[in-house]
Amino acid sequence: MSIAVGGAKSDAGLEPVQRVTDSTQAINQLKSVLVTADPPLREELAKLGNAELFRSCARFADAGGREEGREESVLRATRITLGLLAQRIGQLSEQIRNVDARVTRLVKCHAPQLLDVVGIGPDTAVALLITVGDNPGRLGSEASFAALCGVSPVERSSGRRQVRRLNRGGDRQANAALHRIVFTRLRVDQRTQDYYERRIKEGKTRREIVRCLKRYAAREVFHLVRQLQPGPRS
């Protein structure tokens, strides 16, 4: 099974991230322009929340050609710039919502069981499904999936000292998805929080605990998606 067939990989796996990045950049640009805007305009918009701020600024672009002639050109340019940026934010937000809906439908179609797991949302699930679909021959075992995601332990010995270091290999998108699962669980899942506190008392560092939790998450995901894989050839 692969949701990457027919170009879906690009739509589901890459475009949402890029659109969110573009939207964040546009928001930062709008607020940077607002910081240097004319004081009365800045004070007028400073008290607004983000949603109302973007709606108010978007109206500036629509009125850009109807500004009064006595208005200073710098102020007029500022209003038009804010309006264009706000319109872009609105367009990107709508695109993100549409892509999110498509991603959710894909996951519900191919692996709805993933959405029942704490910490796994549609974006995280689709990133893992893309990794699974692109590498069906490498998923013979739970350990191979962990290595594929870059969360398998890497032994590093120095004399009598036996340690495990961070695995920097594997699919980094899948690794990032497991990272999101772990940090979501650390915020909302009591079992994960209890595990974290117990390991801290045992002397483990935060990085070591997160590495263990990512490995556990990979094991859980593997058993949820293994049923999607075709059986071994005789």
Rank of each mutant, 00 (worst) to 15 (best):
E220F: 09
T78R: 15
R172C: 12
R19P: 01
P112F: 09
G150Y: 09
T81L: 11
Q91E: 03
Q25P: 00
S32E: 12
A51H: 04
Y196P: 00
Y216I: 14
H223P: 01
Q113Y: 03
L178N: 10
A51C: 04
H223S: 09
A86N: 00
P16S: 09
G13F: 08
E155F: 07
R76M: 10
N28E: 02
D116Y: 03
G231W: 01
V225H: 01
P39I: 08
L41A: 04
D194K: 08
A147M: 04
V74L: 05
E44N: 03
V221R: 00
Q227F: 12
R164A: 11
T104K: 13
I120Q: 06
F222S: 05
E220G: 08
V33G: 01
R180C: 09
R199A: 05
L166V: 14
R211D: 13
V188T: 06
A218V: 00
V126W: 06
R185S: 08
E71A: 10
V154Q: 11
H179L: 12
L166A: 10
R138F: 03
L115W: 05
F60R: 07
S93F: 03
G13K: 06
G6R: 06
L45V: 09
G119K: 08
N175Y: 11
I80N: 00
F60A: 07
E43N: 14
R42P: 10
I3T: 03
R199L: 04
V5E: 10
R191N: 09
R219C: 14
D22H: 12
R211V: 12
R164E: 07
R19D: 05
Q190E: 07
Q190V: 15
